[in-house]
Deep mutational scan, measured.
Amino acid sequence: MDVFMKGLSKAKEGVVAAAEKTKQGVAEAAGKTKEGVLYVGSKTKEGVVHGVATVAEKTKEQVTNVGGAVVTGVTAVAQKTVEGAGSIAAATGFVKKDQLGKNEEGAPQEGILEDMPVDPDNEAYEMPSEEGYQDYEPEA
């Protein structure tokens, strides 16, 4: 019985440690998101679009440190934060509304985080759909 109880105690310690790591990862992701939003706020009209992409990228980098179902929630929060940063930029006159959601080359930025393969159960990952990809044929 002692062996059984000791095993359960060790398992509990492992769960607590994993929860603490997840909590730490979420806190880091939130900190990076805040950094990115402050970065966007300090940019001029020309830099705002690039700044919004930076927020998304920093958040995406930190999301990889967070495991399990938390990833889905962090990704949703990050996307809403990026959308909010863009709205703030438009409201303050840093950028025109028609410039939001495009990178410096004018290509749409939507789907940055949505296409990231995420499995809350950590069982399997699927690649994003290939609808947006084109076949590449090298020139002879």
Rank of each mutant, 00 (worst) to 15 (best):
M1Y: 00
M1F: 00
M1G: 00
V3N: 03
V3T: 00
V3I: 04
F4T: 00
F4V: 01
F4C: 02
M5K: 12
M5A: 07
M5D: 00
M5C: 01
K6N: 12
K6V: 02
G7W: 07
G7K: 08
L8V: 04
L8C: 01
S9V: 12
S9Y: 15
S9D: 02
K10V: 13
K10I: 14
A11L: 11
A11P: 00
A11W: 15
K12N: 01
K12H: 15
E13I: 02
V15A: 05
V15R: 00
V15P: 00
V16Y: 11
A17M: 11
A18W: 15
A19Y: 15
A19C: 06
A19V: 14
A19S: 04
E20N: 13
E20G: 02
K21G: 00
K21P: 00
T22A: 15
T22G: 14
T22M: 11
Q24C: 04
G25R: 13
G25H: 13
G25N: 03
V26C: 14
V26D: 00
A27R: 08
A27M: 11
A27W: 15
A27Y: 11
E28H: 05
E28F: 08
A29W: 14
A29H: 05
A30N: 00
G31L: 11
K32A: 07
K32C: 03
T33K: 01
K34Y: 14
K34T: 02
K34C: 11
K34M: 02
E35D: 11
E35P: 01
E35Y: 12
E35H: 08
G36I: 13
G36S: 15
V37I: 12
V37D: 00
V37G: 01
V37A: 04
L38C: 08
L38P: 00
L38R: 09
L38H: 06
Y39V: 14
Y39I: 08
V40F: 15
V40Y: 15
V40N: 00
G41L: 01
S42W: 14
K43M: 15
T44S: 12
T44I: 11
T44Y: 15
T44A: 13
K45M: 12
K45I: 09
K45V: 15
K45F: 08
E46R: 05
G47K: 05
G47Q: 12
G47Y: 12
V48D: 00
V48K: 01
V49R: 12
V49G: 06
V49N: 03
H50Q: 11
H50L: 11
G51W: 15
G51V: 11
G51T: 13
V52G: 02
V52P: 01
V52A: 03
T54A: 09
T54K: 10
V55Y: 13
V55I: 14
V55T: 02
A56Q: 05
A56H: 12
A56F: 12
A56K: 14
E57Q: 05
E57H: 14
E57P: 02
K58I: 13
K58N: 03
T59C: 15
T59Q: 01
T59Y: 15
K60A: 02
K60C: 14
K60G: 05
K60M: 12
E61V: 06
Q62R: 08
V63R: 05
V63H: 01
V63D: 01
N65S: 12
N65K: 03
N65D: 05
V66D: 01
V66C: 08
G67C: 10
G67A: 14
G68S: 05
A69R: 08
V70G: 02
V70C: 02
V70D: 02
V71R: 06
V71T: 07
T72N: 13
T72S: 13
T72G: 14
T72Y: 13
T72R: 04
G73T: 14
G73V: 12
G73D: 02
G73L: 13
V74P: 01
T75S: 07
T75G: 08
T75A: 06
A76N: 12
A76C: 08
A78G: 06
Q79M: 12
Q79S: 09
K80C: 09
K80V: 08
T81C: 10
T81E: 02
E83I: 13
A85E: 04
A85M: 12
A85I: 11
A85Y: 09
G86K: 08
G86Q: 11
S87Q: 10
S87R: 02
A89M: 11
A90S: 15
A90M: 14
A91Q: 05
A91E: 05
A91H: 13
A91R: 05
T92E: 04
G93K: 06
G93N: 03
G93C: 05
G93Y: 02
F94I: 07
F94H: 14
K96I: 02
K96H: 07
K96R: 07
K96S: 10
K96L: 08
K97R: 11
K97C: 15
K97N: 11
D98W: 15
Q99K: 01
Q99W: 06
Q99E: 05
G101H: 04
G101A: 07
K102G: 02
K102W: 13
E104Y: 12
E105T: 10
E105H: 01
E105Q: 11
G106P: 10
G106R: 11
A107H: 09
P108C: 10
P108F: 07
P108V: 09
Q109I: 08
E110N: 14
E110C: 09
G111N: 15
L113D: 11
D115V: 12
D115R: 06
D115C: 08
D115T: 09
M116L: 07
M116I: 06
P117K: 07
P117N: 06
P117R: 03
D119E: 08
D119A: 07
D119T: 15
D119L: 04
P120C: 06
P120M: 10
P120Y: 05
D121F: 08
D121W: 04
N122K: 15
E123F: 07
A124K: 14
A124N: 01
A124G: 14
Y125F: 09
Y125H: 09
Y125Q: 06
E126M: 04
P128F: 02
P128K: 05
P128A: 07
S129M: 11
S129W: 04
S129C: 09
S129K: 06
E130N: 14
E131F: 04
E131G: 04
E131T: 13
G132I: 13
G132E: 09
Y133W: 06
Y133I: 03
Y133D: 09
Y133K: 01
Q134F: 10
Q134P: 15
Q134M: 14
Q134D: 08
Q134S: 11
D135Q: 09
P138A: 09
E139N: 13
E139L: 04
E139T: 04
A140W: 06
